[in-house]
Amino acid sequence: MKKKQWQGWGSGEQAEQAEQAEQAEQAEQHYLIRPRALAGGGDVRHVSEFLRASGWRDKSKTGGPLHMESPDRTVRIAYDPSVLPGGWIIHGRADGATGEWSAHLGRQTPVEIVAGLTDALTRPRSAHAPNVWAPLQEQNWHTRFEGQNYMATSPDGSTWMQYRQSPDGAAMWWTGAQDKQGNGWTATITPNTPMHLVQAFSTELASPDPVMRPRGRVPHSAQIRTWSVSVTPSQLSAWQQARITAARAANWARNTRPRTSARPYAPAGSARTRH
């Protein structure tokens, strides 16, 4: 009756919009998943929208795979799920002594873990010396030597990170996750990849925080734990927007920082001149 009366005021379109908004705001079932390494790939926009908000160029073609390029054009990121083995390719151009470096991450690498590395590409390096193993050890991962290789394994045994060295001197970072049914992913990172990026990756790899996936996107695995949560579209949008807003703010701060030049050396005791 109320609905008919409201429409009688000549506001049928408004009532319909209100009803659509109410329906759109109905809570949807999602699941929190732990360990995060076995949660599946997730939404690629978690990575790409952050980079775009950080000033990266989107070089993707309509309907094609994702291609992003850093503002200085030294790093490129691609994601293509349509080819085998598919997944993420992150490539850094030669930079001084580092040389070219790359990371290849499988399609089922959770986007939250991928973002550990890609988000770090947008931030200045820390003054502290990076330590790839520290985030793993802080989460009680088992670290040890296995021959020439140094290995870290998660407490449940599902996830690992290894620095592999072959007798001929070749080396690489090798990491991944696998459940008892054989589902999972692997990733390789070249040894000359800047260490602060590898540490950012290992930090997200070892994080005990669960990640969220919508209903229908939860892997069938006996080794994951799930919690059902009800989430409205506006809540999801707000969480996503908070991440994008943070990226934009950091990008603005980087681009508006005043440039300073070193003052010429003045001997002690010399008169100071105001400019």
Results as ranks from 00 to 15, higher is better:
Glu204Phe: 11
Ser166Asn: 14
Thr159Trp: 08
Gly182Arg: 04
Pro210Met: 01
Gln199Ile: 00
Arg45Ala: 12
Val111Pro: 15
Gly10Met: 02
Gln178Glu: 10
Gly106Thr: 01
Ala187Val: 09
Thr203Ser: 14
Ile33Val: 10
Ala200Asn: 02
Phe201Ala: 09
Leu32Ser: 10
Met161Asp: 11
Ser60Asp: 07
Thr143Tyr: 02
Glu28Gln: 15
Ser207Met: 03
Ile89Pro: 10
Arg36Lys: 12
Arg45Gly: 08
Trp227Leu: 11
Ala115Tyr: 01
Ser48Asn: 07
Gln241Arg: 12
Gly182Trp: 06
Lys61Trp: 05
Gln178Asn: 12
Pro85Phe: 07
Arg107Gln: 11
Ile189Leu: 05
Asp95Trp: 00
Pro71Met: 03
Ile77Gln: 00
Pro71Val: 05
Met151Lys: 12
Ala97Cys: 13
Thr203Cys: 09
Ala103Met: 00
Ala200Met: 05
Arg164Pro: 00
Leu121Pro: 04
Arg263Val: 08
His46Asp: 14
Arg34Ala: 15
Gly182Glu: 07
Pro194Trp: 00
Ala134Pro: 06
Pro191Met: 00
Ala24Glu: 09
Pro155Gln: 00
Thr245Ala: 12
Ala266Trp: 15
Gly182Gln: 06
Arg76Pro: 02
Asn131Tyr: 03
Trp227Cys: 13
Gly106Gln: 05
Gly116Asn: 03
Met68Lys: 13
His91Ser: 03
Leu105Asn: 05
Ala18Arg: 06
Arg217Glu: 14
Glu16Pro: 13
Ala187Leu: 05
Leu236Asp: 12
Ala127Pro: 12
Pro85Val: 07
Lys4Val: 09
His275Asp: 10
Pro85Tyr: 05
Thr260Tyr: 02
Pro219Asp: 06
Thr109Pro: 08
Met195Trp: 01
Pro267Met: 01
Gln165Lys: 09
Val231Leu: 11
Gln162Ser: 12
Asn183Phe: 15
Arg257Cys: 09
Thr122Pro: 03
Pro258Ala: 02
Trp101Leu: 00
Trp185Gln: 04
Ser158Asn: 12
Trp9Ile: 14
Glu49Thr: 07
Asn192Asp: 11
Ala170Val: 15
Thr260Gly: 10
Thr273Gly: 01
Gly10Phe: 06
Leu117Asp: 11
Glu204Gly: 12
Lys180Arg: 15
Thr203Ala: 03
Ala249Gln: 15
Thr186Phe: 11
Gln17Val: 07
His128Phe: 13
Trp56His: 08
Arg36Gln: 12
Leu66Trp: 08
Asp168Pro: 14
Gly169Asn: 09
Arg76Asn: 04
His220Tyr: 08
Glu49Gln: 14
Gly216Ser: 05
Ser230His: 01
Ile89Gln: 05
Gly269Gln: 01
Ser221Met: 06
Val47Arg: 04
Pro71Ile: 00
Arg52Phe: 08
Arg217Ala: 14
Ala206Cys: 10
Leu121Ile: 05
Arg123Gln: 13
Val44Cys: 07
